[in-house]
Design a protein around this nucleic acid. Structure first.
Lengths: 207, 207
DNA sequence: CCAAAAGTGTTTGCTCTACACCCATGG
DNA sequence: CCATGGGTGTAGAGCAAACACTTTTGG
């Protein structure tokens, strides 16, 4: 589960209460139940642990090296989840974990199993898909300013973008619907926007 | 396993000798063995059935719908394999299959399980990666002409490309090493090329 | 000498990039 | 009125697309 908090990429980590890595941090997860789709299992596990629901979840990669779990040969199907800011608060302890907390990806503790590598692959996938899809919607609340949206791109891509060029390009894509509302604040109010459509769209680029 | 034969995308299909889909066509595969990586298992199965070895193999997607196999809940990790023309001959019957044959993807028979969908996802992945990686090397023999290479792109992308622009762009990438040999034929001989490096490279494009 | 594929440059339009100033609001 | 972030246009460069003729060989 990835989210942006204070302009930094964060990942939701669990503290393990049992097993060979007791006390270590790891990605939350669980087993597929009989008669259940992999997608369903990922959504069920996520909701059970964190209360988060209805978020973007997509299959990431399947890990099956025999030595990844000291207890035996386990195959794990990793999922990439994305959370908008309003849902990205620490859920606290739940079920089999003694804690569930957001950690900045740039400064992670050592993770149990091969989960450190999993986070790296997830971040790379997010960065790649942001370049050619409308996936940014999954990291934003329903309404947002263009500055918010630009911040998503800048944080994930790891560099700054020219504000005028960004606005031109992103508006030309036609993905956004301008709202009649403004976000008030200490300075000039910013126009609010929403995505017209959250279903996947591909494009030729935001470099 | 995908390959290009006579300028058409083909897939290697097995004819099942047992099970609920006896006589149907399906993608060749098998079970992971104890102590074995998923990648290793894919390579082992491929070699065992077809004698093909040392080819491009990458994880494609993991399928786990409970209803995909009538015998029970099976999770399959699908791999995308690519074969150069010289290896893409029908391997004939082997092991648990009564036949192993290349079929054009454009006119497939009905496949067992959900394998029809798997082939569709594989073709889409191939098309996407051809656009931004040097993956074409896996579909070509060691030496080839620029016309051969252009044909790979045209076949997989499904449209024709301007010969002059194609040559300019592909040579500008620096991926190719010109050889001192020519391919003789009924017409003007064509210069032969090889890939300098078959390790994965990404680029901004061949549209 | 004919058929067929190989080989090669230039022009045009478009897209991306770089860049600076005024505006609206809260405090 | 001041500080701060919001909002906007244009000019130049680089890239992609369109396009036709000559060359080389085998038969």
């Amino acid at each position: 589960m990835l989210a942006l908090r204070e302009s930094a990429l964060h990942v939701l980590l669990a503290t393990l209460a049992a097993g060979p890595f007791t006390g270590w941090r790891a990605l939350p997860g669980g087993r597929v139940q009989a008669g259940e789709t992999l997608d369903d299992a990922a959504a069920r596990e996520l909701t059970a642990h964190s209360g988060l629901a209805n978020l973007h979840l997509e299959q990431l990669y399947t890990f099956g090296s025999p030595e990844r779990d000291p207890r035996g040969h386990v195959v794990s199907v990793a999922y990439l989840g994305l959370t908008p800011p309003r849902a990205a608060t620490d859920p606290g302890p739940a079920g089999k974990y003694t804690a569930l907390e957001w950690h900045p990806v740039a400064a992670l503790p050592r993770l149990a199993y091969d989960h450190g590598a999993v986070v790296g692959i997830a971040a790379a996938r997010l960065q790649a898909k942001l370049r050619y899809t409308n996936l940014a919607h999954a990291l934003l609340d329903d309404t947002f300013t263009l500055a918010d949206l630009q911040s998503v791109y800048e944080t994930v891509l790891g560099r700054t973008l020219d504000r005028r060029n960004f606005r031109k390009k992103i508006l030309a894509l036609g993905w956004l619907r301008p709202l009649d509302r403004k976000r008030r604040g200490p300075h000039r109010p910013a126009s609010l926007y929403a995505f017209r459509d959250r279903s996947p769209r591909e494009v030729d680029v935001l470099r």
